[in-house]
Amino acid sequence: MWKFILRRFFVMIPQLFILSLIVFALAKQMPGDALTGISMDPRISPERIYELREKAGLNDPWYEQYGRWISGIIHGDFGKSYTHKIPVTEVIAERIWNTVFLALITLILTYLFAIPMGILSGRYNDTWIDKIVTGYNYLGFATPLFIFALIMLFVFGFSVGWFPTGGSVSSKVDAQTFEYYVSKLHHVILPALSTALIATVGTVQYLRNEIIDNKFKDYTRTARSKGIPDNKIYTRHILRNSLLPIAAFLGYEITGLVGGTVIIETIFSYPGVGQLFISSIGLRDFSVVTAIVMMLGFATLLGTLLSDIILSLVDPRVRVE
């Protein structure tokens, strides 16, 4: 098992290397750099700007710049943010836990909706309950997340006023108190719920189809031939086999969520990495942008690794020694 995980980590190295090259190249291709803003300023002479560029190493050939950048990353140094004037790692560290918290709650809600809905509509397929769930699924597939999120924000944030419309915690509470955590949860629920209600439909559909599929498999027939009551056949046989691909998909689901936070955090003005990403692009704070892209890329690879590990744990057929 450890061997398998270790080997997968080794495989990730070249993947990350290629990702870093692409990220770096894209960042270089973008118009302007961190000094473009001040170069418009007539009070600063072009010579001074040249000097600054030289000092920041922006005039060096690309591979030298890349070399500096990548060796920094290896040492855990993503450079300094030009707008925040502090190391990029610190800028991200301030917000990353907000994002992780949001993603986690979203993930929990997604499965909380998906599993009962999938089971009900799969087990009682072609009944009214299945038709309701399937109908919801079609709606969910057809609704773009950002529109749905805006509606949710308008209704529950502004009109009804049940949930805060921005931020990650109320400014009135003190850190580390019980109220602080309640407030955090209160802030995260609306964005998490919005994402989960849309993101869940894929899993619901998948689970439903898996259950219907497994219902008519030979081994289910064998189980019925043993005289096992229907309920037990579901819990002992069909569910286990149907949840297997869902569990294996968890890693990819996380990957999707990480991408989804970019939109959702911006809509709900939730101070997380996603929102930082969008604002940094606007400010041309490329050291932050590249760091976030690298981080998201790494998270994606970790997600797929997680999926493989889960699959090898739950499915004896792919169990690795």
């Binding site: 030979d218 081994y219 027939r221 189980a223 031939s225 286990r240 086999n241």
Partner: peptide, 18 residues
């Protein structure tokens, strides 16, 4: 299962893989 048992043709698919 108790009074009448049945043996199916394809033993690979007829057994639960998990």
């Amino acid at each position: 299962g108790k009074e009448i048992g049945i043996i199916f043709q394809e033993p690979l698919t007829a057994l639960n893989p998990l």
